[in-house]
């Protein structure tokens, strides 16, 4: 009897998961949140069980209280906006330059031969290795920070645009020849739309890299208004709640960026969905 049920259950497991089908809401919207919520719960548990020193790991509600206080006074909101502004300027400069150069290299065999190897070496250099050089050349102030962020965004935008354009299939290039397209029509009708999915992938990465670089620049270069500045403050004044709050905030902004980029991508590349 039991053998039969086991066999029956086994057969079922090949076709469908056992148990009631997950409700669409729970399935689609809550599942990605399960792990973060669990982590917060463990944090809370550790803080209250006396396992962790509350000076190093304050409970969640203290961090939340700190957040409420900071935002109601406007201090953290001001710093967040300062970081976002810096991030945005760097991201736009870097990704525009990256896309422009990527298109140029993708179109020109000569430029590809000249610049390709250099750029591939440049890619091997860790982003943060540029920090000392940038601070010497551009200073540790606002200019240096923005250059560093732009450099972070430049890399993925460039590489993806370049590879997107040079990956246009031969058959489409031949089609352009048959339709007697000039350079401009080839770029506008075939190359740029064809490379667009990869350009978006590049921009998406650039957005995340730029945000990482923003915090990096604020932590490593001169202190200025921004989330990184507050984190420095938290470290020096031993305000663990502030530090943790800033980290949560950084993650939150990253998630928001991801969602915005994903939905823009989905909307602009509708032709890919049959």
């Amino acid at each position: 009897m039991s053998l039969i049920t086991i066999a029956g259950r086994e057969r079922l497991s090949h076709t469908a998961p056992i148990g009631p089908p997950p409700s669409p809401f729970l399935g689609r919207h809550l599942r990605p949140l399960a792990v973060p919520i669990a982590l917060l719960a463990i944090w809370e548990l550790l803080a209250h069980a006396g396992v962790a020193d509350p000076r190093f790991l304050p409970p969640l509600e203290e961090v939340v209280a700190r957040g409420v206080a900071e935002f109601s006074r406007g201090g953290l909101a001001f710093n967040l906006l300062a970081s976002l502004e810096r991030d945005l300027i760097g991201f736009v400069c870097g990704s525009v330059a990256g896309i422009a150069l990527g298109l140029a290299i993708g179109f020109s065999r000569l430029l590809e031969r000249l610049l390709g190897p250099v750029l591939l070496v440049h890619r091997q250099i860790a982003l943060f290795a540029w920090v000392p050089l940038i601070s010497m050349w551009f200073g540790g102030g606002e200019a240096g920070k923005v250059v560093f962020i732009a450099l972070a965004a430049f890399q993925p935008a460039l590489i993806n645009t370049w590879q997107g354009v040079s990956g246009i299939p031969r058959s489409y290039r031949e089609l352009a020849e048959v339709l007697t397209f000039g350079w401009f029509d080839f770029a506008r009708i075939i190359a740029i739309p064809g490379a667009l999915p990869q350009i978006f992938t590049g921009l998406h990465s650039a957005l995340i890299y730029a945000w990482t670089a923003t915090v990096g620049a604020e932590l490593l270069l001169n202190i200025a208004p921004g989330i990184g500045g507050r984190m420095n403050e938290g470290q020096h004044l031993f305000h663990m709640d502030l530090l943790l709050l800033c980290i949560l905030l950084l993650g939150g902004v990253g998630v928001v960026f991801n969602v915005i980029a994903g939905s823009l991508e989905h909307r602009l590349l509708r032709w890919r969905i049959p």
Partner: peptide, 24 residues
């Protein structure tokens, strides 16, 4: 020419694909 594979551009709709031949 009509190739063996249709070689339509996937990012253009039917109308725009046909119109592409009239660019020049």
């Amino acid at each position: 020419i009509v190739f063996q594979e249709h070689r339509l551009l996937p990012w253009l709709n039917v109308e725009a694909n046909v119109a592409a031949a009239l660019r020049q």
